[in-house]
Design a protein around this nucleic acid. Structure first.
Length: 217
DNA sequence: GCGACAG
DNA sequence: ATCTTGTCGC
């Protein structure tokens, strides 16, 4: 699948892919393999790296990880992040020996200007259930959630619920959870908490971040 | 029209 | 994303 060559083309592709988005929950009752993906960028060159980490939720043990090198092929434009990161993330997922039950993305799903963020894009393109966990606000408004781990408030745009502002650690800044593809907001919330027993961000995202970053040098 | 704007 | 030390608190 070739990448978009212009903003107009990217937006056209985005709208087309959005037609295939599935919002029903298709996760197994007890998902076993959870993958986390992330991309790192070099400061002074077009070099980038994508990492994918798979963890067995029943044991909490990492079962596999891969890092793939590449180059930037699309500029960073809010609302079009997927066109910059998905190509290399796909390459990483392809090199995985396991087929994860769900993929956690570093960014947003439907909490997006056109309701089709990175997590939705990756989900539709791979067919895998996905959801996003972002570190900073993007679209929508929200009330500050309670200070305890597990407390959350709705991320919304008028009457539309776009996701949840979730406190994964007591007294720590919350994260923004939104659905990607074939995953419900409740499952995404539960999984995010399960994967964040110790830190603010899901373990798989942290590991993917570390691996992609170190591979850059 | 003018800013804001995931990573 | 990336640039970056010390510092406050458990």
């Amino acid at each position: 699948m070739p990448g978009a060559e212009s903003v107009a083309e990217a937006e056209r592709i985005q709208q087309a892919l959005r037609q295939s988005l599935v919002l029903d929950d298709c996760l197994p009752a007890a998902p076993t393999l959870v993958a986390g993906v992330d991309v790192s960028y070099d400061k002074v060159s077009p070099r980038i790296t994508a990492a994918a980490v798979v963890v067995d939720l029943t044991t909490g043990v990492e079962v596999e990880s891969v890092v793939v090198p590449g180059e930037v092929s699309f500029p960073y434009l809010p609302g079009l992040l997927a066109f910059r990161e998905v190509p290399l993330v796909l390459a990483a997922l392809d090199r995985l020996g396991h087929r994860p039950d769900v993929v956690v993305c570093d960014g947003y799903g439907v909490a997006h200007p056109r309701r089709f963020g990175l997590a939705c894009h990756l989900g539709v393109v791979t067919g895998l259930p996905t959801f996003g966990v972002a570190k900073t606000p993007f679209v929508g408004s929200f009330d500050e959630p309670g200070v305890r781990r597990g407390d959350w408030s709705a991320l919304r745009d008028d009457d539309e619920v776009l996701g949840r502002v979730l406190r994964t650690q007591t007294g720590v800044k919350p994260v923004f959870v939104s659905v990607g593809h074939r995953t419900s907001l409740d499952r995404a919330t539960t999984l995010t908490l399960d994967l964040s027993a110790r830190y603010r961000l899901p373990e798989v995202i942290r590991r993917a971040d570390f691996l992609s970053r170190e591979a850059l040098r």
